[in-house]
Design a protein around this nucleic acid. Sequence first.
DNA 1: GCTGGCCCTGACGCGTACGTCAAGGTCTAC
DNA 2: GTAGACCTTGACGTACGCGTCAGGGCCAGC
Lengths: 150, 150
Amino acid sequence: MRIGELAERAGTTPRTLRYYESLGLLPPADRAGNGYRSYGEEHLRMLEQIRTLQEYGFGLEETRPFVECLRAGHPAGDTCAASLAVYRSKLAEIDAWTARLTAVRAEVAAQLLRAEREAGAEAGADAEPLCELTAVLAEAGRPDEGTPPQ
Amino acid sequence: MRIGELAERAGTTPRTLRYYESLGLLPPADRAGNGYRSYGEEHLRMLEQIRTLQEYGFGLEETRPFVECLRAGHPAGDTCAASLAVYRSKLAEIDAWTARLTAVRAEVAAQLLRAEREAGAEAGADAEPLCELTAVLAEAGRPDEGTPPQ
DNA sequence: GCTGGCCCTGACGCGTACGTCAAGGTCTAC
DNA sequence: GTAGACCTTGACGTACGCGTCAGGGCCAGC
């Protein structure tokens, strides 16, 4: 299988596969006589593992233990100790982010309410509907802040 | 007030102030006869507004309406309509992130549990404590993924 | 034999928010 | 008069995950 076919089957691009190889994330592909990279099904499995983890918000480096687990011949990339450790630290990271977002949401919602009150006071008495919208938004969710992975 | 003093009072650096000015986020500072930038208290207020929002995870561009609100002479940066709109869209963004993190956490926790079972099966019967740790972690939190702003 | 599609390597671009360095001018104090 | 602390502009570096050329080789079909 050449790079274009593998890329398509994996839902990615040749550029990305070369990039992973340059990082040492994927093992160097065999080369055909003309210098073209030659891949097997095991490479597809590694790429699927990487993509899944990326969709979860893992960085490429965090996928490395999973890929190496597959390279070591394990049927799954996440049954090795190092992979399990990454899963666990990711859960902790997620929890930390969630807590931060929750706190920030509360802060922003409070600021919004205050600012709307002050805006109304500044302008006189005319912007009532804004306050109702705000109250709805304030009750709707939890805080979030920034751009978490994934 | 020169740039170094303002930066220190605002808890930032001269480089950052020049950067903001280059973005047009801060108004161009007056210049003393020697070419040095000269600032007043109003610049400090703008910087405090920017810093607060950054701690909430706002990007610099998102702080622009707040700064312009102050520049327009309002006593607070967040009582203008554009600022309120940014607050509201930020709340929505936070809620979206929180939902995503929650979903991802559930996925990762499920994968972790499955992988631990499979790891135990692969190795025979010896890795029991791992499963107990996992159960604790799985109950502890919610999902998170990636690196949200702030 | 030639067009078109695939492959190769190397290198620059992007977005964010600055840090850091270079090369030089200015002002204060000793 | 000179050391030291401040200021100026300009430009490159950082982290991430590739996208997008540029310039060139390889191969199948007509």
